[in-house]
Design a protein around this nucleic acid. Structure first.
Lengths: 336, 336
DNA sequence: CTGTTAGCGCCTTCAA
DNA sequence: TTGAAGGCGCTAACAG
């Protein structure tokens, strides 16, 4: 290890040491262009000896790219919280793997969706070569406007015919229908939906659920707004039960929501599934570890992540892409 | 919105439009240097009109920085999985928030710890201004060697006097002691540790736990190796119980591990905490939602993340830093 | 096969 | 207060 040599910071330092030009060094290290094999080997040896690596930032600037894909969760100041949602973080992990396989880094830049041009600002700052948005939140208009001028962008979320951007997501409506049918088949008479309709995904789950109920049951179905955080969900459920409500069937907007409801029910002596059946959504890893194990509508997280990345790569290559909807499956375990 | 104008890609485009030099535009947009207020306002207005933003990549190259901090999980091909661990992903979310507050992006580059110079390679590629390593895994030697030449690096993990790098982490040994004392106080006579000692954090938990047991109990304590994934943990626990083992007290290396053990126990008719008390480690959000609610050794995830970032910022400013250990607390709930 | 040259988009002395 | 020029570290024609 050339102990006495000064630090080799750039390709020109290396060129001086090797007695060649910078472009020769570049060719040797990148493997591009033609070069005498012996020269290449020699330069690579010197580079290794000095622990030299090409500066990726400079390389990317020159190549007009950044080598990074931005993964954005448009959830405002709740992002720290949101990332602790098992579904999102699993998605995130799979995205990281898939992007890496394609040679891209994953850049997480926390965005506060303030005003209506935060997305365009992010795009124009040139920090990434493309964008993967996880969830539409309530930013549909912003997404549509950005999609007008900017292409390498895919969105995990609900499909809608008039969206001008490419989405990948589950058929949430059908997911809701599956949950409803299952609870009906169990003979439930008094239902409740724990969730909200602020984001399109959740709105579709709710709509599907309600649509599959007979009129009389639907009219009696409670809609209990819950927050994404476990604490929030649990507090909502506690208040609901404390008010004397005793549904015999519950559909929750997410597995975390379902687990929270079950925990709250326990405090009120409501047994699951004996007194109350509970269906979740997502099928996170922990769903099979809770007791009772969770009956839930499964989303293919890994498949979704891979699809997001595949579509984005196609866009980066100049191709056109179409939105994709995954068909959800009901996984019947113990809670319903 | 200048609908007829061509795209404004660089400050030289903008300079031409405004009839000034590029340096004037630079000064106007960055706010650095001195400039006539009227000129500044005028240029900013033109920039806004064209939706122009400085190219961050070029800016950073010129400033000799990247504006990003690398967050690395040295877990090889399991990284996708690892990120689904609630503890890690919560840590990750808090890191994202803290880094953003300091004006840094978070770059997640999946690293396969192959050979012994992956870290130095990453450092030299110049992709980030600093590194936050989450967990030491079994890469202590690599970390020490990198720390010899490279400073902006902090590590979440176990402290050791001879580490040459700065660590932030819980006092895992004491955590293990707390768990042992609690189980002893409950009168447990037949104990088991579900975990492994491959990473320093876990080794310390195990050591603390065992050290606090009376000799006779320690000699009878089962050491059951489990994997980080829920499936892996559960399979190990199932095999353990299937072999007829019936401990009355269990300490698991993580909450996910504890939940897995409880799930497996259920299959064998082992009631928790009636037949068997279980203590976890971490206190993830879901720990209070399981039934029974988890008794666990709490780590301060948010505080840890903030400390990691604070120390890294201090290093980036040229300062020296010292390792920090958080004192863990035992949170007694229902499982033990 | 290799060197020279001209930038990628930006910031910052140095002069005017 | 502003402009001109040089360069961050790298790549890619174009010559030779």
């Amino acid at each position: 290890m050339g102990a006495t040599t000064a630090a080799v910071r750039s390709i020109s330092d290396l060129a001086r040491i090797a007695g060649v030009s910078v472009s020769t060094v570049s060719r040797a290290l990148t493997g591009k262009g033609t070069l005498n094999q012996a020269t290449r080997d020699r330069i690579r040896a010197i580079a290794a000896e000095h622990g030299f690596r090409l500066n990726v930032a400079a390389q990317n600037l020159r190549l007009g790219r950044t080598g990074a894909i931005g993964v954005l969760l448009p959830l405002g100041h709740e992002q720290g919280q949101a990332l602790s949602d098992p579904f999102l973080s699993a998605m995130f992990g799979y995205l990281a793997s898939a992007l890496t396989e394609h040679g891209y880094d994953l850049l997480l830049s926390r965005i506060l969706p303030q005003g209506d041009h935060w997305l365009e600002d992010f795009v124009r700052s040139g920090r990434t070569d493309g964008i993967i948005m996880i969830g539409q939140s309530n930013q549909n208009a912003v997404l549509n406007r950005a999609a007008e001028h900017y292409r390498p962008m895919v969105v995990w979320g609900a499909y809608a015919p008039d969206n001008r951007y490419t989405t990948v997501g589950s058929d949430n409506f059908t997911g809701g229908v599956l949950a409803a049918r299952h609870l009906l088949a169990r003979g439930c008479k008094q239902l409740a939906w724990f969730g909200h309709a602020d984001a399109p995904e959740f709105a579709a789950r709710q709509a599907g659920f309600l649509s599959a109920l007979p009129d009389d049951l639907r009219a009696n179905t409670a809609v209990v707004p819950i927050h994404i955080t476990p604490e929030g969900s649990r507090a909502s459920a506690q208040a609901f039960f404390a008010a004397g409500n005793r549904p015999d069937g519950v559909f929750a907007a997410s597995d975390v929501g379902a687990i929270s409801v079950i925990a709250a029910a326990g405090e009120f002596g409501i047994a699951v599934p004996g007194d109350m059946a509970v269906v979740g959504f997502d099928d996170i890893l922990l769903a099979q570890l809770t007791s009772p194990q969770l009956t839930t509508v499964r989303q293919d997280i890994e498949g979704g992540a891979r699809m997001l990345v595949d579509l984005l790569m196609r866009q980066l290559a100049g191709g056109k892409t179409q939105s994709v909807q995954f068909v959800p499956r009901l996984i019947v375990r113990q809670s319903a």
